[in-house]
Amino acid sequence: MTLAAHPAMPYAAAMSSRPTALILTAAGINCDHELVEAFELAGAEAVPVHLTRLIREPDMIDDFDLIGLPGGFSYGDAIAAGRILATMLSGHIIDHLRAAIDRGVPMIAPCNGFQIAVQAGLLPGPWGEAPARTEAALLENDGGRFVDRWVQVEYPRSRCVWTQGLQSAGAAAMLPIAHGEGRFHASDETMRRLEDDDRIAVRYAVDDDPNGSRGRVAGICDHTGLVFGLMPHPERYVSWKQHPMWTRLDEQCDDTPGLQMFHAAVAHVQSAGVTAP
């Protein structure tokens, strides 16, 4: 699938039985192809839409059942990773995104998407009545370098709809990371509230924290459990052959943990449903 515009597609897709996923693309976004593939493998119809078009036609967002903010280096990560795209979203389409969440639309934001989501105030999101604000950050890795490797992660009990199936698994599993600014940072107060409200969805395993994150936080969700941001790349782990050790694994029949996340969100949409605007 290329980034070509698909003028009629969202509307047509909305008619079909498969849930539709909006994949945001923009200058420097570069993990959109694999995110599209992950949603498609999970039974959704994924449509990449460029930011310029979304700003022109924000109402288009109302037609989708799922949303993906892909990874990459949006606008070159100038100033700080995800900062400029977050400013663009806040300035132009944030209300439509919030409305989508209110409709029950699950949203996944890996890597750069996570960096964008926290700066746009989508994560950790509102606390009760208090309006959402920027209260977390993803800072330069402790090592001061970009790192690409696979890390052990845990899925604590949380309200995140994307990791429901994985929380019971208990044992640490692997996910790929590839980032230079992934060190999760928040105030003691925010950290406590995240814990108390079950919003910490992914943690790096003890001794396998690649960036020095507070509380080994690798991913969090908002109060609805719908919006899920994480530094690892589940969309790069939808086939067992993407696992770094697959040549020594026995034949695997079930879905990879990465693909399970997308299945969970698609299933959530199909059962709980997404209300029309």
Partner: peptide, 15 residues
């Protein structure tokens, strides 16, 4: 090598 993103695009089956 670890400074390079050798898995972006999700196509790298032998790393």
């Amino acid at each position: 090598v670890q400074q390079y993103d050798h898995e972006v695009q999700g196509r790298t089956m032998v790393k």
